[in-house]
Design a protein around this nucleic acid. Structure first.
Lengths: 203, 203
DNA sequence: AGCGAAAGTAAACAATCGTTTACTACATAC
DNA sequence: GTATGTAGTAAACGATTGTTTACTTTCGCT
């Protein structure tokens, strides 16, 4: 079976997401899989190699996703308000997809938690945490709003992304995940209306 | 000297905030203090006792702070708009103080980071994280807005608190902390104006 | 002066950590 | 049919984990 390596990766990720890298032992990972710890070393050089492979996997998956989703595509063209309304729709739909991705996706959700637990451990982890979950999405949203000629793209991005970021935390601490998803939905629908209204004004 | 116990507490907190509870060894704490690890056991029963003492200290400090700060005080009285404007001022000033507290206070700032790293480890830690940093402040703000008869206090609370929560993350990943503080200041001043405007309408 | 508690050291404790080794079962290829 | 490489086990490795013990030093108290 060639999927043992895959099972190790996913099991380790799930455990890292709960107790952090240092809080999980090689024996625990192996025990969870029903094998002895020696077996892990047939697939990975060492414990850190498992962790690095998780990060590499995320980077690959994220690149693929960025390729499929073509939100930016065209920037700062001369177009009527209708086009910019369509862009706003695109942004909001993208945001919804991103929220579901980081909360429900079998890989991205535990990866987000793992990064959260490792963010202060090293400069590299802090960089990844910022890139995937804080300054990365924030700067990306600011660029989009800037391309749409919003007067204060930075502030707009904060108002837009901050509720998503907060609701990640709410989501993790809630038993009934559905209500959080619907709250996020409501907030984003309000944002959609508000942005289109502001759009009509600032032209 | 009676402050060795205190120095152990603060040193452990600083280390826990960076590498998490499991990522810090008793030897490391002792080494940081320039003593042998046996000395720690003269002041604390075990490693977990140090951690628990940190949490207990935070709970005490938080209770004191809540006593000093009397934001809620009077609720839902029959009063003119001027009073509600004053209440909004009070809320915004409180929020500013809270942001500085969780980012700059020598104890609260590392405690916030520590909780962030431990939030998924146990139900108790998740509860504390939610109480201090997520659903706690959010519900508190919602109560305040509800007392001021805002039509959608929950949503208002999210719009108000979410940027603060996001900027905790930005603050941690930024070298020049001052700009983050000034950004937070600007956002809260905007919120102050907006809330007073909405206040005049919804009466 | 002498006693006793407090605070710290050095060393040892069993347990666990991540990792390596020697060996077995079982494929597939020639 | 035998060689080869893969995937797994069991056991051991030295290092480190959290904790305890025995001993020393130092201080306040009467």
């Amino acid at each position: 079976m060639g999927d043992t390596k895959e099972r190790i990766l996913l099991t380790a990720l799930r455990l890292f997401a709960k107790d952090g890298y240092e809080g999980v032992s090689v024996s625990t990972i192996a025990g969870e899989l029903g094998v002895t710890k020696g077996a892990l070393y047939k697939h990975y050089r060492n414990k850190r190699d498992i962790f690095d492979s998780i990060v590499a996997r995320m980077e690959r998956q994220d690149a693929e996703r960025a390729g499929e989703y073509g939100v930016p595509e065209r920037t700062l063209e001369e177009t009527p308000d209708a086009y910019r309304d369509a862009s706003i729709d695109c942004i909001v739909d993208y945001a919804k997809a991103q929220f579901r991705y980081w909360t429900e996706d079998g890989f991205a959700a535990p990866f987000r938690k793992m990064l959260t637990l490792e963010q202060y451990g090293s400069a590299e982890m802090e960089r990844l945490y910022q890139q995937y979950l804080v300054s990365g999405p924030l700067g990306y949203m600011a660029d989009l709003f800037a391309a749409l000629n919003f007067p204060q793209p930075q502030e707009e991005a904060v108002k837009f992304y901050a509720p998503m970021f907060l609701l990640y935390g709410i989501y993790d601490g809630t038993e009934d995940k559905r209500v959080v998803l619907s709250v996020m939905d409501g907030l984003l629908e309000n944002a959609r209306k508000r942005l289109k209204g502001a759009n009509a004004e600032c032209g």
